[in-house]
Amino acid sequence: MTELAAPTTASAITTPAASGAEKRGWLATAGLLLPAYGWLTLAIFLPLLMMLGFSFLKVAPFGGRTIVWTLDNYLAFLKRPYLRDVAWTSLSIGIWTTLICAVIGLPAALALARSTFGRTRQVLFLLIILPFWTNGLVRVFSWTMVLRDGGIIDGLYHWVLPDAAPLGLLYTYPAIVVGLVHAYLPYMILTCYLSLVAIDDQILEAARSLGARAPVVFWKIILPLATPGLISGSVLIFVPVIGSFMEPRILGGRVGVTMGTVIEDQFTQAFNWPLGAALSFTMLAIVLAIFALAAPVLKRQQGGPRP
């Protein structure tokens, strides 16, 4: 019964539009929005702008130093080869983490979406999401318990083979990746689950009635329909991972040098804020590029046609 009537969806109140009321309406809207966006401007947008400015300076303009503009910081990748290595490390950690999350997460989401029902499904869903909303730091720390020499895995190993050398699992790249996968896996499971659960059962039944067996159904129907979930999950994982510094430091020790740790160093150890700013914005540019590329998929996931 939808006519071209006044919008009665939950998106607009139609107040009688006498011009006085319209003006008051506008003012009210502004009033409602101002505190939030004012706060965000103060806390996020202005700081980002300032940091952008900083990235073009030679030195931080404090303590009476003069302002010297330069592009050096952005050219640091050319001048300092170790930055390229670090960048590459970050990217590869990101790719590995995302890939493993996808490979592990999609089947799990599939099982959750299609093989569980009702209360069981709700409980399992909650179980998967729950760790995600707990403190990330604590979770990373908990991995040290498991991976360290003398920890659970090493302990079990030595219980079986008492004379073997320590496993040395901690403070390695794999340790970092394991920690990151653990931290971000729920993202992938969630996005894939949302895509999969939207698949109409009848489509699969139709495919089977036309003679398709399970592998074909998976490759030709389920996987393509789950792709938006895979892509959103990948974006949601890759972006924070390349910027992570906490996990690399804790799980990687001296080996854990990533863009994140290098940037962090500029601000807490080296006090080279302009360089840190430039590196940050370089990373931000990559992040924005990724979002821009994936935007159509993300939009469809969020507000697409509802079943």
Binding site: M1, E3, L4, A5, A6, T14, P16, A17, A18
Partner: peptide, 18 residues
């Protein structure tokens, strides 16, 4: 039928639409 304007007319009488 749908789109004939009947609901709009009703809402004008109600006062939701000017």
């Amino acid at each position: 039928p749908s789109g004939s304007g009947k609901t709009t007319l009703l809402r004008i009488v109600a006062g939701f639409v000017v």
